[in-house]
Design a protein around this nucleic acid. Structure first.
Lengths: 130, 130
DNA sequence: CTAGACCTTGTCGCCGGTGTCAAGGCAACG
DNA sequence: CGTTGCCTTGACACCGGCGACAAGGTCTAG
């Protein structure tokens, strides 16, 4: 399988696949003419990469999962390094949820306060003019 | 007040103040020698900018708040444009909280599943090896 | 032989808010 | 007059995951 076919089958671009390769996530062989040649297993790998990216992982975080798949495991999640990353990411997400919740509360209060002030100003105007 | 003093008093850098200026958020006069001259009110403006940035607003979102302060209001929040931005941002945050909650659940499940599989594998190994 | 559809490497651009450095003008003090 | 310390504009660097383009090699069909 050449790079174009893999890209199409994985729903991504050749540029992206080459980018993954420079970051050590995908490892094609080379044919005599220098073309990248991928075997079927790489499709699985690319899907794993895309799924994790979609969840908010960075390429560096993803490396262990790919290694786990390459080691022959049915899921990229089961190896110790993958589990460690999952734990860390979960903690990061929790922390971010906290911050975002705080922000939400502040925005909500700020908005409520602004509206109250607008209403008061409106009332004062009516009292004065009417 | 020159740019260095404002930067120090606002707890930021001159570079940052000039950047805000290029984006229309801060408007110093110029002295005869071309130096930027800020009056006291700009300190307030810069604080508003920083507070909103800290909450996750972009510079473009902040413009209405600054305009509101400049229009003489005690708070940058009370003008219609500001309120509109606050509403939009609140909605954005809510949407992001949703997504992040989904991600959290997925990560949690993925992690739990991985750990289960590891335990099963461990048990099988023990059974086999005695 | 040629057109066209693949492939290769290399490089620049984006987004946003800043750090940082360069090269030069101005002010104040000794 | 020189040093110090402020100011000016301008421009590059960063991060991350690509998009987009250039200049060229390769393979196949007509």
């Amino acid at each position: 399988m050449l790079i174009g076919e893999l890209a199409q089958r994985a729903g991504t671009s050749t540029r992206t696949l080459r980018y993954y390769e420079t970051h050590g996530l995908v490892r094609p062989r080379r044919s005599a003419n220098g073309y990248r040649v991928y075997d079927e297993a790489e499709l699985r790998v690319v899907h794993e990469i895309r799924a994790l990216l979609a969840v908010g992982f960075g390429l560096d975080d993803i490396r262990p999962f790919v290694a786990c798949l390459r080691a022959g495991h049915a899921s990229g999640d089961v190896c110790p390094d993958s589990v460690a990353v999952l734990r860390r990411k979960l903690a990061e997400v929790d922390a971010y949820l906290d911050r975002l919740g705080t922000v939400r509360r502040q925005l909500h209060d700020q908005l409520a306060q602004a509206i109250i002030q607008r209403e008061e100003a409106c009332l004062r105007t009516r009292q004065r003019d009417g």
